[in-house]
């Protein structure tokens, strides 16, 4: 299981990386953490002719808050995000989620940008970006553009980057103080791919929920936002019945991709349970009942 040969490019700046992308076009493939790409290459499922390694692009390694937005450079290691106090203050949701990504040694290499750009429909970080109302910054030879998460994820392993664009930043807006979060996922064994995951943010205005976001992964072609379930919850006082209703609504129109890990029907059942549990957890955190 050795990768097919390739030409290796190691740009040290974003500009160089983007220049290489422009030059190589569809022959070039970005190498970020490589924790998914090298798997595919070792199996020879993919055989890129050119790898553009952005690991040396240290300017894309940052976690900072700009104007109330958490900005994470694409080359930031997942383990750095996991340990970032800045990120934990600003978006405990993404910190909770990233701990579910594979194993620590994988997160020591895996990057935030790579995970988002890979657009694995079962992956954790895309669901979090979607829930948070986040954006991605794409940089091309002609400049930058910013896309909402909803516009970025186009299908399984498919995103809205054009061949000469590099995802350079992930941006998460800050939710108000007192927001409760929950990321829960179902793995058959520790560290294995999730069958289903749920990312929830909830804010309470007094007794009732005034803001809510619910996303799921592993249940459709892309991570999905459960907007109708959010509508159902918003403005209401949390209760077991409400969560159950919301969970049913959130899973009423999904089309999971079945595979050997789990059938579509089973994923839907899990999704319903996990939406309910995540809502419960997020609300209890919003109320300050749980850490």
């Amino acid at each position: 299981m050795k990768p097919a040969p390739f030409n290796y490019h190691a740009p040290s700046t974003t500009e160089e990386a983007v220049g290489l992308l422009a030059e190589l076009g569809s022959q070039g493939r970005i190498l970020a953490g490589g924790q998914s790409l090298f798997q595919l290459m070792n199996f020879r499922v993919v055989k890129p002719e050119n790898l553009i390694d952005i690991n040396p692009v240290s300017e894309l390694d940052y976690i900072r808050v700009d104007d109330g937005t958490l900005a994470i450079g694409a080359r930031t290691r997942q383990s750095a995000l996991e340990r970032s106090t800045e990120a934990a203050r600003h978006s405990p949701l993404i910190v909770e989620a990233v701990k579910n990504v594979a194993h620590p040694s994988v997160r020591n290499r895996g990057t935030v940008g790579g995970s988002v750009a890979y657009a694995d429909p079962a992956s954790e970080l895309p669901a979090v970006v979607l829930t948070s109302g986040g954006e991605v910054v794409l940089t091309g030879a002609d400049g930058q553009r910013t896309l909402s998460a909803g516009d970025f994820f186009r299908g399984p392993y498919t995103n809205a980057c054009s061949p000469d664009e590099l995802l350079t930043e992930v941006r998460l807006p800050r939710w108000p103080d007192g927001t409760g979060h929950a990321f829960l996922e179902f793995q058959r064994k520790h560290g294995s791919y999730a069958l289903v995951g749920t990312a929830v943010l909830v804010h309470l205005d007094g007794e009732s929920i005034d803001r809510v976001a619910i996303s799921l992964c592993g249940v459709d072609q892309t991570p999905v936002r459960a907007s109708r379930a959010e509508d159902l919850v918003r403005g209401n006082v949390p209760s077991d019945g409400l969560f159950e209703e919301a969970a049913a609504e959130a899973t009423s129109d999904l089309h999971p991709l079945p595979d050997v890990k789990g059938s579509a029907a089973y994923r839907l059942k899990l999704a319903r349970v996990y939406v309910r549990r995540a809502l419960e957890l997020a609300v209890s955190r919003a109320k300050g009942e749980r850490p």
Partner: peptide, 16 residues
């Protein structure tokens, strides 16, 4: 064969 890697053939870890 649908389980030709350790992503699908699940070997117990220390937490399992």
């Amino acid at each position: 064969l649908l389980t030709s890697s350790y992503q699908d053939y699940l070997i117990p870890s220390a937490l399992d």
